[in-house]
Amino acid sequence: MQLGRLTDARLAQAFVDYMAVQGMPCEIREDGHYFSIDVVHSEQLDAARREFQQFAEQPNHPKYRSASWQRADRSGAQFDYGSSGTPILHQIWLHAGPLTLVILGACLVLGLLSQIGFASTIFGALHFPAPFVEQWMQIWRMFTPALMHFAMVHLLFNVVWWWYLGGRIERVVGTPKLLELLLIGALFSNTLQGFLVDANFLGLSGVVYALLGYIAVVQRSKPELAMPPAYIGFMLFWLALGFAGVLGQQVANYAHLGGLLVGAAQGWLDARKSHR
């Protein structure tokens, strides 16, 4: 009997281990992009559902992470995470939706073109409106700075986070929601950076922070979106380092902050709707 579905295999395994410690054995079953949790004994279904609801509210509680260490009998409820023997391109495809892949591909293409002599041309066509009074009608410039990366480290950092966060949102909530976060996140973060600093910035970081803010707020109501707290902590620490000036003067700090705030606001609105 199914208790629910998760997108994170490790969270699913932590819950299964916890349930085994509680004497309510469960199994993990791969179901497309999801990992379904099934209770083994039907008479324990009601109690298991209550446990899953508690898990949904606090998926990263230490008791779930420590359950794997407490569990003595590990002969059952084990799961192959697919980290070995699976081609990397297949893993990328499996954990992303179409919009995630399209934006990832666009960033890679523009990044590679910038490395072979087209950086100035790309920047001239896609930068944030400057001067704004002359270019404000070129509406694409409000969004396209997010697609440009001239440094390969910057490019790889952003597309990996986009794939991880955007793919998660697209699989769980849907492509329209990811598109909404992409457009709103790019518009708000780019505008904040453009007006408070200048138009000389680029990168998907503002959108990445919008996705982070969204997941951080809604993951309690949608455990399928839950991510390790350390990931959120790392990104917030990185944001703080930028404002402290440790990362240099070329970091679009206000784009990061703007993205985080608008993503969190959207997450708060969606969380309210789900509780009505």
Score class of each variant (00 low, 15 high):
94 L>S: 12
71 R>V: 08
51 E>M: 08
149 H>L: 06
155 L>I: 11
111 G>E: 01
32 G>Q: 10
50 R>Q: 14
28 I>T: 13
110 L>H: 09
40 V>M: 11
78 Q>M: 08
34 Y>V: 11
106 A>W: 00
51 E>K: 07
116 I>T: 14
45 L>S: 02
145 P>L: 07
122 I>A: 05
58 Q>L: 12
129 P>V: 06
117 G>A: 10
26 C>G: 03
131 P>N: 04
153 V>G: 08
43 E>M: 09
87 P>I: 08
94 L>F: 13
98 P>L: 14
89 L>M: 13
55 F>S: 02
78 Q>S: 15
69 W>Y: 10
118 F>Q: 13
120 S>C: 00
138 Q>P: 00
140 W>A: 10
82 G>H: 08
77 A>K: 01
28 I>Q: 11
26 C>H: 01
42 S>A: 15
138 Q>D: 12
48 A>Q: 03
70 Q>F: 05
39 V>L: 13
66 S>R: 07
155 L>N: 01
102 V>G: 03
101 L>Y: 01
94 L>V: 06
87 P>C: 04
155 L>F: 09
155 L>T: 06
101 L>V: 15
98 P>Y: 09
81 Y>S: 09
33 H>F: 02
39 V>R: 03
145 P>G: 09
139 I>G: 15
118 F>C: 06
95 H>G: 04
33 H>N: 10
68 S>V: 00
60 N>K: 01
124 G>T: 05
123 F>R: 12
68 S>G: 14
117 G>T: 04
74 R>K: 15
53 Q>G: 05
147 L>F: 03
118 F>N: 09
78 Q>C: 05
125 A>M: 14
45 L>K: 02
42 S>K: 14
53 Q>L: 13
133 V>I: 07
27 E>Q: 12
133 V>G: 06
151 A>L: 08
127 H>W: 01
27 E>A: 13
85 G>L: 03
132 F>E: 09
84 S>F: 07
75 S>I: 03
59 P>T: 06
34 Y>W: 13
89 L>Q: 03
